[in-house]
Computed example of a mutant assay.
Amino acid sequence: MTLSLAWIRKVNTVEELVIATDSRLRFGCAWDCSPKIFPLSRGDCAICFAGNTMYAYPIMEQIRNAITMYPKADSRALDLCDLKGHLLRVVRNMESLIHDLPKGKKEKDIPDALFILAGYSWAKAEFKIWILYYNAAHKQFEFKRPSMLHGNRIAIIGDDVGDAQRQILNLAREREIPKKNGFNMEPFEVLRDFCRDPKRHHIGGAPQVVKVYKHLNSMPYAVYWPNKESNGRSLMGRPLLEYEMANYLMLDPDSLKTEDYVPAPAKSRKSGLNLQDDAL
């Protein structure tokens, strides 16, 4: 599975929404470059997932399609809170189309996928975070608000959720963060440590980070990985090639400082790298 989080970051009087996750998929092996956060075309929100990709990827792709094909949704004329209802109907309709079950099987499997939908509502003038999950009792997908942690609402889905909650709470207490003052980057710090922990087999790869701002724009952040000293650069979970440029800020996962993107030092020309090798 994975570990995905969304929280409202407060720095002095400024608020921004942060969504972060790891980059590992497992299907008999580990693949540490898988995109799990998808900023949506309207700019004011993003969606991420945890769980079975058999359910997750079709749902996320159709959510993206449902927004881009509907001008009011794509332009943000449809507020995020109203968009949520539209997307729920889309997902429920998709789930109803599962059929042709294996012979002898009477019921569908419960879709073991969870999603976080988060963004900024211009109608409510506040950030919104919801968890989309399958309610087995009601036999349908539903949205719910995430629980409170240290007086702040934070969504955490995937593996080791209880452990992540405890460690975030410990950091808040150690740093004497007043309740309801909001987290800074403590949830990311816990995710970072989980990604580096070889014992957490279902969580790994470079962290992915997307921020949503009150000016109704979202932006991914590139991350130095496994640390800044390594000069490794990752964006949305994928290590960037030596010659790739990213028009985003770089995040140092340890100092938590950001800086303009600077290409990694070029390797020796003896490496044989030739950008024309694949030219048609």
Rank of each mutant, 00 (worst) to 15 (best):
I37C: 02
R42L: 02
A30G: 08
Y55P: 08
Q62S: 13
L25S: 14
A30S: 11
L40T: 01
C29S: 12
M60V: 09
F38A: 01
A30C: 08
C48I: 03
C48W: 01
A50L: 07
N52W: 10
N52T: 08
S34P: 07
I59P: 09
S34C: 06
F49G: 02
I59V: 13
I59W: 03
D32C: 07
D32G: 09
G28V: 12
F38K: 00
F49D: 00
I37N: 04
K36H: 01
N52P: 05
N52D: 13
E61L: 11
L40D: 04
W31P: 12
A30Q: 14
R42D: 13
R42P: 04
C29T: 15
I59A: 07
G28A: 13
Q62W: 09
I47W: 03
P35L: 01
N52L: 08
W31F: 14
C33A: 09
D32V: 11
P58H: 03
C45P: 06
G51C: 06
C48Y: 00
G43V: 13
E61T: 12
D32E: 09
S41I: 05
P58G: 10
P58Y: 11
N52R: 09
S34L: 05
T53Q: 15
T53K: 12
C29V: 15
C48P: 04
A46I: 03
T53F: 08
T53P: 13
P39F: 00
G28T: 13
G51K: 04
T53N: 11
G43D: 09
L40A: 00
C45H: 07
S34K: 02
P35V: 02
T53V: 14
P39T: 02
D32K: 11
Y57P: 05
C48S: 15
R24N: 08
A56I: 04
S41P: 12
K36I: 01
R42W: 04
G28D: 14
N52I: 12
